[in-house]
Design a protein around this nucleic acid. Structure first.
Lengths: 109, 109
DNA sequence: TACTGGTACTTAGTTCTACTATGTAGTGGT
DNA sequence: ACCACTACATAGTAGAACTAAGTACCAGTA
């Protein structure tokens, strides 16, 4: 993966995953697949699982283990109230940064 | 500074500084002041100087030492060809991420 | 003269997050 | 038996921003 993208994902990947979980619970393998489909083709599996462990420990998601027809049991993550709160803050932070950057890009023209 | 912002700045602060340098050379203290004026009120001085050392070592800027009327000599940074190149890549990377995130935000509504 | 405050740069050590690399397990098809 | 796909886990590494502390130069002032 591009080094720039790697660095830029720090701080945003967590928000992206929380956003993917709004409205629809999902498990790790599924989330990895969704990320790939959305163009994040090079995100390592391990990165996603580590992130999921982290947001679980921070209490942003609820977890439930469900059997799979095709392999080991899945860990299904559901966004909870604290997670929705964190996601809101994420959008605020991102909006600020995004506006600054668009401003800079305009001026650079 | 908010922890979210700290993490989100990883990978973007460098681009922001490169963008600030387009068209106009600047020295560290000045850049720090500009960042503060643009709303990044909590960025530590040390962070900026460390970043400047880094982009100099990567060869993205040219450096010239100039005397100051008000203190120690200034190190004035000018964006060079390689720096402009890096900045272009930065905008590409950021555009991609930005589009993905706006998409997610829309869907989350 | 000594002191303070603003200007200007530096750097050692910490924290956090994504990556690399590798491993473990269950299931179905050949 | 073997392989591919599904599914999760984790130890160690790298990179970037932070904290905290320091050095140095100059002007005004008590």
């Amino acid at each position: 993966m591009g080094k720039q993208m790697t660095e830029m994902l720090k701080g945003t990947l967590e928000g992206i995953v929380l956003a993917l979980l709004t409205g629809k619970a999902a498990y790790g393998y599924e989330i990895t697949t969704q990320l790939r489909e959305q163009g994040f083709t090079e995100i390592a599996e391990g990165t996603v699982y580590a992130l999921l462990v982290r947001i679980e420990q921070k209490g942003l998601v609820d977890v439930e283990k469900r059997p799979s027809e095709k392999g080991p049991p899945r860990k299904v993550y559901t966004l909870n109230a604290q997670g929705r709160n964190e996601l809101n803050e994420f959008w605020n932070t991102w909006s600020f940064l995004s506006e600054r950057l668009e401003q800079l890009r305009k001026e650079g023209k």
